[in-house]
Every structure is written in C-alpha cells, then in structure tokens.
Design a protein around this nucleic acid. Structure first.
Length: 568
DNA sequence: GCCGTTTTCGGCCCGACTGTTTTCAGTCG
C-alpha cells in the first residue's frame, strides 16, 4: 500500500467517526495523521520496516497500529466496525455542497435520509426545512447542490480515465492477435472530464473472434452485456465501451469512436454528399481505410486533430485552413506555481527541485500561499524573506537549475492583495488568486479579478473561476472582460493543470491567444507527483489550441523574467 | 487519538461566511 492510499483510508475513517457522532477531536487526529503521513519523504514500506511511524508528529501508538494493519491487510478493525455502522448512502450525502458531516448525521438520524434520492424526496416534500437547525435557505442550497451533482453524473476526472485506460492497455499487452488498442471519446479529445472509455481493439486479419473471446475472459473487467460491442466496468469501476474491429474499417471506426457527435454528424453529411458512408454497420458505399487521415482525405477535408473535433465548425476543405500546432509536453522548460511545506505543500523546496532536475526541467517557480490563507499556513512577510534566503542558497548549489521566487498571493474581497507592493516587488513573479469569499455576482467577481490584474506587481492570474470539476462551479466570471483586462495590462492568465480544476476553461484559450494574453500551464502542485499534472493541462490546452509561443512554460527562465519585468 | 506538561488531563489550525437563532453551529478553504 502507498502512503497516499493509507492516508485516504485514515481520512475515510475520520469521516465515518464524524458521521457516527464520535469525538470530533478523535476524527481530527486521524485526519491530521493522514496529512503528516503524506508529507513523509520515505515510502510506507520503509517507514514500517524501520519502525518509524510513531516517531512522526501526530502519529502515536494507535494510528501507527492502524497504518500497519492497512499495509498488511488493507484495512483495520475500527475502520471495518465504523463501516458497518454507517449506510453507504449517508457518505454520498457529503458530496452535496454545503452538506457536511454534522448535517448528514442529522438527516440520517432525524429524517431517515440515507441516500441522495431520499434527500431529494425529503426536500420536495418540505421535510428538510422543518428539521431543527435547517431552514428554507438550507433546503434551497441542497436543491442546487443536488442539481449540480445530477448535471455531472456519469462524468469522471480526466486523470481517473487515463489511469483506467492505462490499466486496460497493460492487461491487453500480451494478448495475441491485437494490432492496436485505441482510446477515443472525450479522453482522446482532451476534455476535462470523461464519461465512458471508448475503446477500439484493432485485430489482425482473421483474429477478430479470438481476440473478442480473449477480452471476454479478462479478469480485470466485468462485462455486463454483449451486443455488437462490449460494455463493461474496469476494476476501478470505470465504464468501458469496447469494440473489436478489422484493419480495413479502423479509420472510420476511430473517427466514430472519437466524436464529438456534432463533428461526426458534419463529417457524415459531407460523406453522404459525396456518395459515401462512414459507418461500416450501415449500408452504402462504406469508406474502408486503415487510418483516419485517409478518411478525411477521401472526403476532400483537412485532417482535424482530435482535440479540435468539438462542434460542427471544424470541418474544412483541404487547403482552406491550417490548424495551429498545440504546445507539447516536451516543450515545457519550467514549472510555475508549486507549493512547499512552508505553506500547505507536502515536500520541501529541495525535494521539488531535485525531482524536476531529474526530469530535465530548467526552473521551478515556487508560489506558496500568502498570510491571510491561515488554513494553508500562508507565509507572513518575515517567512517570505526567510524563504528568499533559502532559495538564494539553493540556487548557488543547484545551478544551472533555478528556483524562481514567487507567491500565490490572495486577492482580498475588494481586489486588493494580501501583501503590500513593496514586498510584492521583491518576488521574481507574482500570481494572484481568490481563495475565499466565493459568493459573488459576475460583476463583482470580474471587478475583483480585474483590480488584481491592474496591480503592476501582478504577473499571472491564478485559477480564474475557482471551479472544482465535478464538485463546484466556482464564482461566475465574465471571461471576455477578464481577457480584455489582462491584454490591456500585459498580464497572463494561468491554466491551472490540477485535474480537479483545469481552469482557465479551454473554451477561452483561443480568445486569450488572439489577444496575446500568455497562458502558462501551472500544476498548482502540492507534492512531487502533482508537478506532473502539467500533462493534463497540455492535453486540454490542445483544444484551444494553446501554442508554444503563447505559453510561458515553454520559455527560458530569463525570457519569463524579462516578460515579468516588461509590465512592472 | 495525540501531545505536552506547572504529566495522567485539557486543548487540539483559524477566520470568513452563512443560516438559523437571538448567541452560535456548521461548512469551507
């Protein structure tokens, strides 16, 4: 078991304790222990082998024993007991925004609400607002929260989809008769969230039936029904739609499996007008080709990169338009916006730098939280200056690698910043973000963000809407005005690459590009693995597309600093 | 449950915001 998995189990236990109404400080002790465990540089195996768990602050005898049990048998006695005591639907209730453990427990105990469906019924029946401690506004808030959950139902975070795809690929790698394992759908198109994994298995000639039988026999996927294709669920409960296809139909089938619906519909119309059919399962003059490129060419159309296949307006005749190249992962030279143990990160500066040097990156832009973010142990001006000294020392040691002195300074409710201009001037770069006071009108939120961008010390606007994909929408922002403002003041807007955010929304990348508003790909990393979240940003940014030239992450440190100085 | 101590109990990250109350509890970042 990894540290992260053990920490997740400890957190889950803490939630169960709260739902069971047990001592909240006991619950917090497990949460705290989970956080401290994650921050250890060593692996769980090493910590256990060297008997060092209880030496970690926040982990005593009891939690250490629980962690050892987790590592050896995947659970611990108290966790199992707590699980028995809480209906699984009650845990689901916590997904509703504004509904925490105390209210979930009250709903469960006082109103017998033990599922999201039961909550919806209770709201509509007017039962919620009659409960002690609840009122009409709370009921309305839950109604809104439930509607949001419904709107995202069946969608999954991109990184979970990629993980499920990699696991399936791995389980198929030694199967005979397979020429290619192809993943289409939103995963291939670079969307922020993914519904099903759309998989095509291109079989060698004459091997279709054998391959299909082999896939049905896979132990890592449970196939629920079999028609012309297969429908199943991965070990991680990810929904899969899979078809085994022959080489001569692969080109068209890949296009159909990739989508989007609108793009495919537009292609089908062009095909029909030329007397062709795209779908091998339909009658007519079916286009039989091995590659997608051949299909577009046969229709007299320019090949459309998968991320651009949204809507029906990306279909062009050959030569009538060229699609710009999107930034590629290997073009990224530096990573901006990372947190260290100085605020709420899990690794020290030196560890982050070492991980980046190992992967061949040139610079790291640290951006810890500012003082008003107390929950995240935000830095005071004194602690900022101490960090600068640490960076100076590290830079001498690690050259030519460079650590840039940055901050993710809070944008206060009125648009002022959480540090004074004199301190801000001492940073190499300043990213400014909103972390509190989300309840704003679009007008207020846009004005607050613009005021921050107008400050000459600010270089980059962080996660512009504060959204958490599949969890909350964030505050409403007028992106057009925001991009105008950034363009006027020569500022950048980050695409936050955390797979939970991917904010700036890709729909606005083209507008940023045309207004020459740079868009750095920022992982907002809180641990070493989080640094590589830039991958998700690269994949989604291809939908703009965001070009390398307009992405400061592809610039050298000197080019980036020169740009920062240009508007100070 | 963990920690620290004027050791075996008392306090635990912290402030803003919101809604239900009418002084405070719950949620969130």
């Amino acid at each position: 078991m990894t540290k992260q998995e053990a920490a997740a189990a400890l957190r889950h236990y803490a939630v169960l304790l709260e739902l069971l109404g047990e001592d909240p400080f006991r619950a917090r002790a497990f949460e705290n222990a989970a956080r401290m465990l994650e921050m250890q540089p060593e692996s769980l195996d090493v910590l256990i082998a060297e008997n060092r768990l209880s030496a970690i602050r926040g982990i005593g005898k009891g939690v250490a024993a629980a962690i050892c049990d987790l590592n050896s048998r995947g659970t611990f006695a108290e966790l199992e007991e707590a699980r028995q005591g809480v209906p699984s639907g009650v845990i689901e209730l916590l997904r509703v925004e504004g509904l925490g453990p105390k209210k979930a427990r009250a709903l469960w105990k006082d109103a017998k609400v033990t599922s999201l469906a039961a909550l919806e019924n209770a709201i509509e029946a007017g039962l919620i607002e009659r409960l002690s401690g609840f009122g009409a506004k709370t009921a309305q808030k839950f109604r809104t929260g439930l509607a949001f959950l419904k709107s995202t139902s069946g969608r999954h975070w991109r990184h979970h989809a990629a993980r499920a795809a990699e696991a399936l690929q791995e389980s198929l790698k030694d199967m005979a008769g397979i020429r290619e394992v192809f993943f289409g759908g939103s995963l291939r198109r670079g969307n922020e969230t993914v519904g099903d994994l759309h998989v095509l298995i291109v079989a060698d000639t004459g091997q279709t039936d054998t391959v299909r039988a082999g896939i049905l026999a896979l132990s890592c996927v449970s196939w629920s029904e079999t028609g012309s294709g297969l429908r199943g669920e991965s070990a991680s409960a990810f929904p899969i739609e899979l078809s085994v296809v022959t080489l001569d139909e692969a080109g068209a089938r890949k296009i159909l499996a990739t989508g989007s619906e609108e793009h495919v519909r537009a292609l089908k119309e062009v095909a029909a007008s030329k007397g062709f059919s795209l779908d091998p399962q339909e009658s007519g003059n079916v286009l039989r080709t091995e590659s997608e490129e051949q299909v577009y060419a046969a229709l007299g159309l320019a090949y459309v990169p998968p991320p651009l296949r949204e809507g029906n307006n990306s279909v062009f005749a050959v030569g009538s338009r060229a699609f710009p190249d999107a930034v590629r992962l290997e073009q990224i030279r530096g990573i901006l916006h990372c947190h260290t143990t100085a605020s709420d990160g899990h690794h020290a500066l030196r560890e982050l730098a070492a991980a980046m040097i190992e992967r061949g990156y040139e610079y790291l832009g640290v951006a810890d939280h500012s003082q008003s973010a107390a929950y995240a142990h935000g830095l005071t001006p004194e602690r900022v200056r101490a960090q600068w000294c640490e960076i100076d020392e590290l830079n001498k040691e690690l050259a030519p690698f460079r650590i840039l002195k940055g901050t993710e300074v809070d944008i206060l409710p009125d648009g002022r910043l959480d540090f004074d201009d004199e301190l801000l001037a001492g940073f190499d770069f300043v990213a400014a973000s909103i972390h509190s006071g989300f309840n704003m009108s679009e007008e207020d939120a846009t004005a607050r963000l613009c005021r921050a961008l107008e400050n000459p010390q600010v270089d980059i606007l962080g996660h512009p809407t504060g959204r958490l994909l599949l969890e909350r929408n964030g505050y409403p922002v007028n992106h057009r005005r925001l991009i105008d403002c950034a363009a006027r003041h020569g500022k950048a807007i980050e695409m936050n690459c955390s797979p939970h955010r991917l904010d700036l929304d890709w729909h606005f990348l083209a507008s940023a590009e045309s207004r020459h508003v740079p868009v750095p790909l920022c992982p907002d990393a809180h641990h070493i693995e989080g640094l590589w979240d830039i991958r998700w940003g690269v994949e989604v940014a291809a939908k703009g597309p965001l070009t390398a030239a307009n992405c400061p992450s592809t610039w050298s440190a000197d080019e980036f600093l020169e740009w920062c100085a240009s508007h100070a």
